[in-house]
């Protein structure tokens, strides 16, 4: 929460430029380097998380308002659920746990 008059939106511009750079960097890592596929996935996965954080903090102002902390807790919990669903599904359905013996 800031005062009524806002100057040039540097926050948004920096977030935008960073998003573009992170996207191009991910493409560079994926197609122009000789890293193993596992390393590439870890690097571009990390870049994606950084980009999501830029959106949340620089564009969506998640911490803003009286309920800012509540928003953060809510989103962290949702991300936890998302990770459980994604990795749990992969684990259960690809490592033989679903096989009928």
């Amino acid at each position: 929460m800031t005062t009524v008059k806002h100057g040039f939106p540097w926050n948004h511009l920096i977030g935008f430029v960073l998003s573009i750079l992170l996207t191009l960097f991910a493409v560079f890592i994926a197609f122009e380097t000789d890293f193993s596929k596992t390393v590439i996935m870890w690097v571009i996965g990390t870049l994606a998380i950084f980009q999501a954080l830029i959106q949340l903090f620089m564009f969506m102002h998640i911490t803003e308002g009286k309920e800012g902390m509540l928003n953060v807790i809510n989103i962290i919990y949702s991300i936890f659920l998302a990770l459980v669903i994604v990795f749990g599904s992969i684990w259960v359905l690809t490592s033989g746990h679903s096989a009928i013996h």
Partner: peptide, 20 residues
């Protein structure tokens, strides 16, 4: 914001199906 939390979970189920 709480709705967006539910949307994260919705999309996670679709990502999970895709990865499987």
């Amino acid at each position: 914001w709480i709705f967006l939390g539910a949307e994260i979970v919705l999309f996670s189920t679709l990502f999970a199906s895709y990865f499987v």
